[in-house]
Design a binder for these strands. Sequence first.
DNA 1: TCAGATAGTTCGATTCATAGGAATATTCGT
DNA 2: ACGAATATTCCTATGAATCGAACTATCTGA
Lengths: 184, 184
Amino acid sequence: MSSGKGKSREVLTSELVQAARRSATMAVLFHGAIAAQFGLSATDTRTMELLDRLGPQSAGEIATYTGLAPTSVTALIDRLEARRLVRRTHDPNDRRRVVVVREPEGAAGMNGHYAAIARTTLTLLARYSENELRAITEFLNESATYAESAVAKLGTRSARTLPAKEERERKQRPRASSRRRRGE
Amino acid sequence: MSSGKGKSREVLTSELVQAARRSATMAVLFHGAIAAQFGLSATDTRTMELLDRLGPQSAGEIATYTGLAPTSVTALIDRLEARRLVRRTHDPNDRRRVVVVREPEGAAGMNGHYAAIARTTLTLLARYSENELRAITEFLNESATYAESAVAKLGTRSARTLPAKEERERKQRPRASSRRRRGE
DNA sequence: TCAGATAGTTCGATTCATAGGAATATTCGT
DNA sequence: ACGAATATTCCTATGAATCGAACTATCTGA
Protein backbone atom coordinates (compact mmCIF):
# COMPACT_ATOMS: atom_id res chain seq x y z
CA MET A 1 0.00 0.00 0.00
CA SER A 2 0.92 3.63 -0.16
CA SER A 3 2.75 3.45 -3.46
CA GLY A 4 5.34 6.13 -3.51
CA LYS A 5 3.46 9.13 -4.78
CA GLY A 6 0.01 9.37 -3.18
CA LYS A 7 -2.20 7.70 -0.66
CA SER A 8 -3.50 4.21 -1.15
CA ARG A 9 -6.98 3.77 -2.46
CA GLU A 10 -8.01 2.44 0.90
CA VAL A 11 -6.91 5.59 2.62
CA LEU A 12 -8.59 7.73 0.01
CA THR A 13 -11.91 6.01 0.43
CA SER A 14 -11.83 6.10 4.18
CA GLU A 15 -10.98 9.78 4.07
CA LEU A 16 -13.93 10.28 1.80
CA VAL A 17 -16.30 8.47 4.13
CA GLN A 18 -15.10 10.59 6.98
CA ALA A 19 -15.53 13.75 4.96
CA ALA A 20 -19.02 12.67 3.99
CA ARG A 21 -19.98 12.19 7.57
CA ARG A 22 -18.54 15.53 8.58
CA SER A 23 -20.36 17.18 5.74
CA ALA A 24 -23.63 15.52 6.72
CA THR A 25 -23.24 16.60 10.32
CA MET A 26 -22.59 20.16 9.28
CA ALA A 27 -25.59 20.10 7.01
CA VAL A 28 -27.73 19.08 9.94
CA LEU A 29 -26.32 21.81 12.13
CA PHE A 30 -26.67 24.37 9.37
CA HIS A 31 -30.31 23.58 8.74
CA GLY A 32 -30.90 23.44 12.46
CA ALA A 33 -29.38 26.86 12.96
CA ILE A 34 -31.57 28.37 10.27
CA ALA A 35 -34.66 26.71 11.67
CA ALA A 36 -33.77 28.01 15.10
CA GLN A 37 -33.50 31.53 13.73
CA PHE A 38 -37.04 31.28 12.50
CA GLY A 39 -38.28 29.58 15.63
CA LEU A 40 -39.25 26.46 13.76
CA SER A 41 -39.64 23.10 15.43
CA ALA A 42 -38.52 19.89 13.77
CA THR A 43 -42.02 19.26 12.51
CA ASP A 44 -42.27 22.76 11.13
CA THR A 45 -39.02 22.34 9.30
CA ARG A 46 -40.00 19.05 7.80
CA THR A 47 -43.24 20.50 6.61
CA MET A 48 -41.43 23.36 4.93
CA GLU A 49 -39.18 20.87 3.22
CA LEU A 50 -42.21 18.95 2.09
CA LEU A 51 -43.74 22.04 0.53
CA ASP A 52 -40.41 22.87 -0.96
CA ARG A 53 -40.01 19.55 -2.65
CA LEU A 54 -43.54 18.64 -3.63
CA GLY A 55 -45.22 21.99 -3.90
CA PRO A 56 -48.53 23.02 -2.30
CA GLN A 57 -50.11 20.36 -0.13
CA SER A 58 -53.46 20.05 1.58
CA ALA A 59 -53.77 19.87 5.35
CA GLY A 60 -54.69 16.23 5.06
CA GLU A 61 -51.66 15.45 2.97
CA ILE A 62 -49.49 17.16 5.52
CA ALA A 63 -51.15 15.06 8.20
CA THR A 64 -50.34 11.91 6.29
CA TYR A 65 -46.78 12.94 5.68
CA THR A 66 -46.01 14.06 9.21
CA GLY A 67 -48.10 11.42 10.91
CA LEU A 68 -49.86 14.12 12.90
CA ALA A 69 -53.50 14.19 13.93
CA PRO A 70 -55.65 16.62 11.95
CA THR A 71 -55.92 18.81 15.00
CA SER A 72 -52.18 19.16 15.23
CA VAL A 73 -51.88 19.99 11.57
CA THR A 74 -54.20 22.92 11.98
CA ALA A 75 -52.00 24.21 14.77
CA LEU A 76 -48.93 23.52 12.67
CA ILE A 77 -50.26 25.55 9.77
CA ASP A 78 -51.20 28.30 12.20
CA ARG A 79 -47.62 28.48 13.38
CA LEU A 80 -46.17 28.64 9.90
CA GLU A 81 -48.73 31.17 8.82
CA ALA A 82 -48.03 33.36 11.84
CA ARG A 83 -44.41 33.47 10.72
CA ARG A 84 -45.48 34.39 7.21
CA LEU A 85 -43.85 31.31 5.78
CA VAL A 86 -46.97 29.84 4.22
CA ARG A 87 -50.48 30.84 3.27
CA ARG A 88 -53.78 29.00 3.32
CA THR A 89 -55.64 28.65 0.05
CA HIS A 90 -58.70 26.77 -0.97
CA ASP A 91 -58.79 24.08 -3.57
CA PRO A 92 -61.24 25.46 -6.13
CA ASN A 93 -62.30 21.94 -7.02
CA ASP A 94 -62.97 20.90 -3.46
CA ARG A 95 -63.60 23.78 -1.18
CA ARG A 96 -63.33 21.68 1.93
CA ARG A 97 -59.64 21.30 1.35
CA VAL A 98 -57.15 23.81 2.63
CA VAL A 99 -54.11 23.97 0.43
CA VAL A 100 -50.96 25.28 2.00
CA VAL A 101 -48.58 27.18 -0.23
CA ARG A 102 -45.25 28.75 0.54
CA GLU A 103 -45.23 32.47 0.98
CA PRO A 104 -42.32 33.61 -1.18
CA GLU A 105 -41.61 36.85 0.65
CA GLY A 106 -41.65 35.26 4.06
CA ALA A 107 -39.48 32.43 2.91
CA ALA A 108 -37.01 34.86 1.42
CA GLY A 109 -35.13 34.99 4.68
CA MET A 110 -34.55 31.28 4.69
CA ASN A 111 -33.80 31.18 1.01
CA GLY A 112 -31.26 33.87 1.55
CA HIS A 113 -29.14 31.50 3.57
CA TYR A 114 -29.49 28.78 1.01
CA ALA A 115 -28.67 31.16 -1.78
CA ALA A 116 -25.54 32.25 0.04
CA ILE A 117 -24.27 28.73 0.43
CA ALA A 118 -25.13 27.97 -3.18
CA ARG A 119 -23.14 30.98 -4.28
CA THR A 120 -20.15 29.94 -2.21
CA THR A 121 -20.42 26.46 -3.60
CA LEU A 122 -20.22 27.83 -7.09
CA THR A 123 -16.96 29.58 -6.36
CA LEU A 124 -15.57 26.38 -4.88
CA LEU A 125 -16.40 24.62 -8.08
CA ALA A 126 -14.15 26.67 -10.30
CA ARG A 127 -11.14 24.53 -9.61
CA TYR A 128 -12.63 21.22 -10.70
CA SER A 129 -12.52 19.69 -14.12
CA GLU A 130 -15.72 18.74 -15.86
CA ASN A 131 -15.12 15.09 -15.13
CA GLU A 132 -14.62 15.84 -11.49
CA LEU A 133 -17.82 17.85 -11.44
CA ARG A 134 -19.65 14.91 -12.90
CA ALA A 135 -18.14 12.57 -10.35
CA ILE A 136 -19.09 14.79 -7.44
CA THR A 137 -22.63 15.26 -8.65
CA GLU A 138 -23.06 11.58 -9.21
CA PHE A 139 -21.77 10.75 -5.77
CA LEU A 140 -24.01 13.28 -4.08
CA ASN A 141 -27.05 12.02 -5.89
CA GLU A 142 -26.35 8.39 -5.19
CA SER A 143 -25.78 8.86 -1.52
CA ALA A 144 -28.89 11.03 -1.32
CA THR A 145 -30.84 8.25 -2.94
CA TYR A 146 -29.57 5.80 -0.40
CA ALA A 147 -30.47 8.13 2.44
CA GLU A 148 -33.88 8.53 0.93
CA SER A 149 -34.56 4.82 1.04
CA ALA A 150 -33.16 4.57 4.55
CA VAL A 151 -35.46 7.32 5.72
CA ALA A 152 -38.38 5.57 4.07
CA LYS A 153 -37.59 2.44 6.06
CA LEU A 154 -37.08 4.26 9.32
CA GLY A 155 -40.17 6.37 8.92
CA THR A 156 -40.23 10.08 9.30
CA ARG A 157 -42.47 10.43 12.28
CA SER A 158 -41.07 12.15 15.31
CA ALA A 159 -40.97 10.39 18.64
CA ARG A 160 -43.38 12.72 20.37
CA THR A 161 -45.85 11.98 17.64
CA LEU A 162 -45.70 8.25 18.10
CA PRO A 163 -48.82 6.36 19.15
CA ALA A 164 -48.00 7.93 22.49
CA LYS A 165 -48.88 4.79 24.38
CA GLU A 166 -45.89 2.71 23.33
CA GLU A 167 -43.88 5.74 24.14
CA ARG A 168 -45.36 6.01 27.59
CA GLU A 169 -44.50 2.43 28.42
CA ARG A 170 -40.76 2.69 28.07
CA LYS A 171 -40.41 5.32 30.65
CA GLN A 172 -38.80 4.98 34.04
CA ARG A 173 -36.36 7.78 34.55
CA PRO A 174 -33.64 6.90 37.08
CA ARG A 175 -33.74 10.57 38.00
CA ALA A 176 -29.95 10.74 38.29
CA SER A 177 -30.20 8.06 40.95
CA SER A 178 -27.53 8.35 43.57
CA ARG A 179 -24.66 10.48 42.65
CA ARG A 180 -22.42 11.47 45.48
CA ARG A 181 -21.40 8.08 46.66
CA ARG A 182 -17.93 8.31 48.04
CA GLY A 183 -15.76 6.25 45.77
CA GLU A 184 -16.68 7.26 42.20
CA MET B 1 -21.19 27.02 -24.41
CA SER B 2 -22.33 23.44 -24.77
CA SER B 3 -19.45 22.22 -26.92
CA GLY B 4 -20.66 19.31 -28.92
CA LYS B 5 -20.13 16.34 -26.66
CA GLY B 6 -21.44 16.90 -23.13
CA LYS B 7 -23.20 19.43 -21.01
CA SER B 8 -21.81 22.88 -20.61
CA ARG B 9 -19.83 23.66 -17.53
CA GLU B 10 -22.60 25.92 -16.44
CA VAL B 11 -25.09 23.10 -16.54
CA LEU B 12 -22.71 20.80 -14.74
CA THR B 13 -22.17 23.20 -11.89
CA SER B 14 -25.82 23.97 -11.48
CA GLU B 15 -26.61 20.28 -11.42
CA LEU B 16 -24.00 19.86 -8.77
CA VAL B 17 -25.44 22.62 -6.63
CA GLN B 18 -28.83 21.03 -6.91
CA ALA B 19 -27.43 17.63 -6.00
CA ALA B 20 -25.65 19.14 -3.03
CA ARG B 21 -28.85 20.64 -1.76
CA ARG B 22 -30.74 17.42 -2.20
CA SER B 23 -28.01 15.54 -0.44
CA ALA B 24 -28.05 18.00 2.44
CA THR B 25 -31.80 17.75 2.79
CA MET B 26 -31.65 13.99 2.88
CA ALA B 27 -28.91 14.13 5.48
CA VAL B 28 -31.16 16.23 7.65
CA LEU B 29 -34.09 13.87 7.23
CA PHE B 30 -31.87 10.87 7.84
CA HIS B 31 -30.50 12.20 11.09
CA GLY B 32 -33.96 13.30 12.09
CA ALA B 33 -35.38 9.86 11.49
CA ILE B 34 -32.71 8.24 13.61
CA ALA B 35 -33.20 10.75 16.39
CA ALA B 36 -36.92 10.10 16.26
CA GLN B 37 -36.35 6.40 16.63
CA PHE B 38 -34.51 7.03 19.85
CA GLY B 39 -37.01 9.54 21.09
CA LEU B 40 -34.47 12.32 21.17
CA SER B 41 -35.45 15.96 21.17
CA ALA B 42 -33.52 18.53 19.19
CA THR B 43 -31.49 19.47 22.24
CA ASP B 44 -30.75 15.85 22.99
CA THR B 45 -29.53 15.32 19.47
CA ARG B 46 -27.31 18.34 19.49
CA THR B 47 -25.79 17.24 22.73
CA MET B 48 -25.03 13.83 21.30
CA GLU B 49 -23.40 15.48 18.33
CA LEU B 50 -21.35 17.60 20.67
CA LEU B 51 -20.10 14.56 22.54
CA ASP B 52 -19.46 12.86 19.26
CA ARG B 53 -17.34 15.66 17.89
CA LEU B 54 -15.52 16.94 20.94
CA GLY B 55 -15.50 13.93 23.20
CA PRO B 56 -16.57 13.84 26.86
CA GLN B 57 -17.87 17.13 28.22
CA SER B 58 -18.74 18.32 31.67
CA ALA B 59 -22.26 19.32 32.58
CA GLY B 60 -21.16 22.92 32.70
CA GLU B 61 -19.68 22.76 29.25
CA ILE B 62 -22.90 21.28 27.95
CA ALA B 63 -24.76 24.12 29.60
CA THR B 64 -22.56 26.64 27.85
CA TYR B 65 -22.90 24.93 24.51
CA THR B 66 -26.64 24.44 24.61
CA GLY B 67 -27.38 27.68 26.41
CA LEU B 68 -29.43 25.78 28.96
CA ALA B 69 -29.80 26.53 32.65
CA PRO B 70 -27.92 24.17 34.98
CA THR B 71 -31.17 22.64 36.13
CA SER B 72 -32.12 21.80 32.59
CA VAL B 73 -28.77 20.24 31.88
CA THR B 74 -29.23 17.87 34.76
CA ALA B 75 -32.57 16.84 33.32
CA LEU B 76 -31.03 16.56 29.87
CA ILE B 77 -28.32 14.22 31.09
CA ASP B 78 -30.94 12.23 32.96
CA ARG B 79 -32.84 11.71 29.73
CA LEU B 80 -29.81 10.58 27.78
CA GLU B 81 -28.68 8.36 30.60
CA ALA B 82 -32.11 6.76 30.86
CA ARG B 83 -31.81 5.82 27.21
CA ARG B 84 -28.35 4.38 27.88
CA LEU B 85 -26.77 6.77 25.42
CA VAL B 86 -24.37 8.39 27.87
CA ARG B 87 -22.90 7.82 31.29
CA ARG B 88 -21.93 10.15 34.10
CA THR B 89 -18.32 10.08 35.22
CA HIS B 90 -16.27 12.16 37.59
CA ASP B 91 -13.28 14.18 36.59
CA PRO B 92 -10.47 12.68 38.67
CA ASN B 93 -8.74 16.05 38.84
CA ASP B 94 -11.81 17.89 40.02
CA ARG B 95 -14.30 15.56 41.54
CA ARG B 96 -17.00 18.16 41.62
CA ARG B 97 -17.29 17.99 37.89
CA VAL B 98 -19.58 15.53 36.21
CA VAL B 99 -18.18 14.42 32.90
CA VAL B 100 -20.61 12.98 30.40
CA VAL B 101 -19.30 10.27 28.11
CA ARG B 102 -21.01 8.35 25.37
CA GLU B 103 -22.08 4.86 26.25
CA PRO B 104 -20.76 2.77 23.37
CA GLU B 105 -23.24 -0.09 23.70
CA GLY B 106 -26.25 2.16 23.97
CA ALA B 107 -25.06 4.22 21.07
CA ALA B 108 -24.54 1.07 19.04
CA GLY B 109 -28.05 1.33 17.74
CA MET B 110 -27.40 4.76 16.37
CA ASN B 111 -23.96 3.85 15.16
CA GLY B 112 -25.47 0.88 13.41
CA HIS B 113 -27.31 3.21 11.08
CA TYR B 114 -24.23 5.27 10.47
CA ALA B 115 -22.16 2.18 9.89
CA ALA B 116 -24.68 0.94 7.37
CA ILE B 117 -24.55 4.13 5.38
CA ALA B 118 -20.78 4.17 5.56
CA ARG B 119 -20.69 0.63 4.20
CA THR B 120 -23.00 1.52 1.36
CA THR B 121 -20.90 4.54 0.61
CA LEU B 122 -17.85 2.37 0.29
CA THR B 123 -19.49 0.21 -2.35
CA LEU B 124 -20.52 3.34 -4.23
CA LEU B 125 -16.94 4.41 -4.27
CA ALA B 126 -15.61 1.46 -6.25
CA ARG B 127 -16.39 3.05 -9.56
CA TYR B 128 -14.40 6.24 -9.06
CA SER B 129 -10.81 6.87 -9.98
CA GLU B 130 -8.37 8.02 -7.35
CA ASN B 131 -8.43 11.52 -8.70
CA GLU B 132 -12.19 11.59 -8.53
CA LEU B 133 -12.08 10.34 -4.96
CA ARG B 134 -9.73 13.14 -4.09
CA ALA B 135 -11.99 15.66 -5.76
CA ILE B 136 -15.07 14.44 -3.95
CA THR B 137 -13.36 14.42 -0.58
CA GLU B 138 -12.01 17.88 -1.11
CA PHE B 139 -15.38 19.22 -2.10
CA LEU B 140 -17.12 17.66 0.87
CA ASN B 141 -14.57 19.05 3.25
CA GLU B 142 -14.64 22.52 1.81
CA SER B 143 -18.37 22.83 1.87
CA ALA B 144 -18.43 21.44 5.38
CA THR B 145 -15.96 24.08 6.40
CA TYR B 146 -18.14 26.77 4.93
CA ALA B 147 -21.19 25.40 6.71
CA GLU B 148 -19.20 25.35 9.90
CA SER B 149 -18.44 29.03 9.69
CA ALA B 150 -22.01 29.83 8.72
CA VAL B 151 -23.29 27.95 11.74
CA ALA B 152 -20.83 29.79 13.93
CA LYS B 153 -22.25 33.08 12.69
CA LEU B 154 -25.86 32.01 13.05
CA GLY B 155 -25.36 30.52 16.47
CA THR B 156 -26.47 27.08 17.47
CA ARG B 157 -28.99 27.91 20.14
CA SER B 158 -32.52 26.82 19.54
CA ALA B 159 -35.34 29.31 19.54
CA ARG B 160 -37.01 27.89 22.59
CA THR B 161 -33.80 28.30 24.47
CA LEU B 162 -33.43 31.96 23.63
CA PRO B 163 -33.50 34.56 26.40
CA ALA B 164 -37.19 33.71 26.40
CA LYS B 165 -38.23 37.30 26.85
CA GLU B 166 -37.25 38.59 23.45
CA GLU B 167 -38.96 35.54 22.13
CA ARG B 168 -42.16 36.35 23.98
CA GLU B 169 -42.33 39.79 22.45
CA ARG B 170 -42.71 38.76 18.84
CA LYS B 171 -45.81 36.74 19.36
CA GLN B 172 -49.34 37.40 18.22
CA ARG B 173 -50.82 34.31 16.66
CA PRO B 174 -53.72 34.97 14.27
CA ARG B 175 -55.17 31.64 15.43
CA ALA B 176 -56.31 30.69 11.94
CA SER B 177 -58.61 33.70 12.03
CA SER B 178 -61.79 33.15 10.10
CA ARG B 179 -61.73 30.39 7.65
CA ARG B 180 -65.09 29.53 6.23
CA ARG B 181 -65.95 32.84 4.77
CA ARG B 182 -67.97 32.26 1.67
CA GLY B 183 -65.92 33.63 -1.16
CA GLU B 184 -62.40 32.09 -0.88
C1' DT C 1 -6.82 24.91 58.09
C1' DC C 2 -10.83 27.11 57.25
C1' DA C 3 -13.88 30.26 54.73
C1' DG C 4 -15.60 31.03 50.48
C1' DA C 5 -16.19 29.85 45.76
C1' DT C 6 -17.57 26.17 42.24
C1' DA C 7 -20.05 22.31 40.20
C1' DG C 8 -23.81 19.86 40.04
C1' DT C 9 -28.23 18.14 41.94
C1' DT C 10 -32.80 18.39 44.08
C1' DC C 11 -37.34 20.37 44.83
C1' DG C 12 -41.34 23.05 43.87
C1' DA C 13 -43.79 26.05 41.15
C1' DT C 14 -44.55 27.88 36.62
C1' DT C 15 -44.49 28.75 31.73
C1' DC C 16 -44.67 27.40 27.07
C1' DA C 17 -45.09 24.69 22.86
C1' DT C 18 -46.75 20.70 20.83
C1' DA C 19 -49.64 16.79 20.60
C1' DG C 20 -54.11 14.26 20.84
C1' DG C 21 -59.47 13.47 21.39
C1' DA C 22 -64.22 14.90 20.94
C1' DA C 23 -67.39 17.61 18.95
C1' DT C 24 -68.62 20.81 15.15
C1' DA C 25 -69.02 23.33 10.75
C1' DT C 26 -68.55 23.08 5.76
C1' DT C 27 -68.54 20.89 1.55
C1' DC C 28 -68.71 16.92 -1.56
C1' DG C 29 -70.83 12.97 -3.84
C1' DT C 30 -74.52 10.17 -4.71
C1' DA D 1 -81.21 14.95 1.52
C1' DC D 2 -77.86 12.01 3.69
C1' DG D 3 -73.45 10.19 4.83
C1' DA D 4 -68.58 10.76 4.23
C1' DA D 5 -64.65 13.67 4.00
C1' DT D 6 -62.03 17.90 5.49
C1' DA D 7 -60.53 21.04 8.49
C1' DT D 8 -61.36 23.72 12.60
C1' DT D 9 -62.27 24.85 17.55
C1' DC D 10 -62.23 23.72 22.45
C1' DC D 11 -60.18 21.29 26.00
C1' DT D 12 -56.66 18.59 28.12
C1' DA D 13 -52.19 16.24 28.65
C1' DT D 14 -47.31 16.04 28.52
C1' DG D 15 -42.49 17.26 27.93
C1' DA D 16 -39.00 20.59 28.09
C1' DA D 17 -37.36 24.54 29.95
C1' DT D 18 -37.10 28.34 33.55
C1' DC D 19 -36.31 30.34 38.14
C1' DG D 20 -35.15 30.48 42.91
C1' DA D 21 -33.48 28.51 46.80
C1' DA D 22 -31.47 25.01 49.48
C1' DC D 23 -27.92 21.50 49.66
C1' DT D 24 -23.73 18.37 48.93
C1' DA D 25 -19.33 17.62 47.65
C1' DT D 26 -15.22 19.47 46.38
C1' DC D 27 -11.61 22.67 45.36
C1' DT D 28 -8.72 26.95 46.39
C1' DG D 29 -6.50 30.70 48.39
C1' DA D 30 -5.49 33.52 52.31
